[in-house]
Amino acid sequence: MAVWEALLELADDHLVLGHRISEWCGHAPMLEEDLAMPNMGLDLIGTARTLYDHAGKLEGKGRSEDDLAYLRDEREYRNCLLVERPNEDFAHTMLRQFYFAAFMRPYWLAALNSADATVRGVAGKAEKEMAYHIRHAGEWVIRLGDGTEESAARMRDAVEALHIYVDELFDSSDAARMAEAAGVLPVRADLRDTWERTVSEVFAEALLEQPKAAYAQRGGREGIHNEALGHLLAEMQVVHRAHPGARW
């Protein structure tokens, strides 16, 4: 276990979620969202790129951002399960985005004091991006939660479906614990209160309730994913892998 692997986990989170949200491009419920969602996707992919690059350098085996993104299988991907969940509908997509951003905002704020200069650089940029994602996705959660009967039902379904992937956000893998001990990355478990506060404020306006007990699903950090990730990666990696060694 090493610090670079903790960065890889973070990079995978951002790439997989960025990829998921990019799947909407051209198919959004309104043109304005056809512009809003790619903005979020580009933020996430941008962060993933910097983190992959840095992880590759720390690993010291000459792996580039593309080597890391395109040449690992699902068992080697380290993202949390939340981000790989399929888009389903706009309610699922916005809630997933909101949950993730509500976690990453305080995470990056804490990372502003990282012992690692690159992480500090990413944090300075990403905390603002996440603040906006909270706002945009959060406003949609409110509108759908307190909109029509249909939208409220869909929003409740999304809450029910995604709830079981929340706890994993606050788990630290062995690699993450190493990075935390070294002062490179923030302690995940410490962010729970802030996350709960962000979510409960929005849920109050959205007339939504957080389900209480649920059996939390985990495993992403060990490469034990849901089946959806394999298909995402197959699609993402197909061209790159069909031409080994080619430049793009």
Binding site: S22, E23, R49, D66, Y70, V239, H240
Partner: peptide
């Protein structure tokens, strides 16, 4: 978009 062969 989902099949672009590099992150750039």
């Amino acid at each position: 978009i989902t099949r672009a062969p590099s992150l750039r």
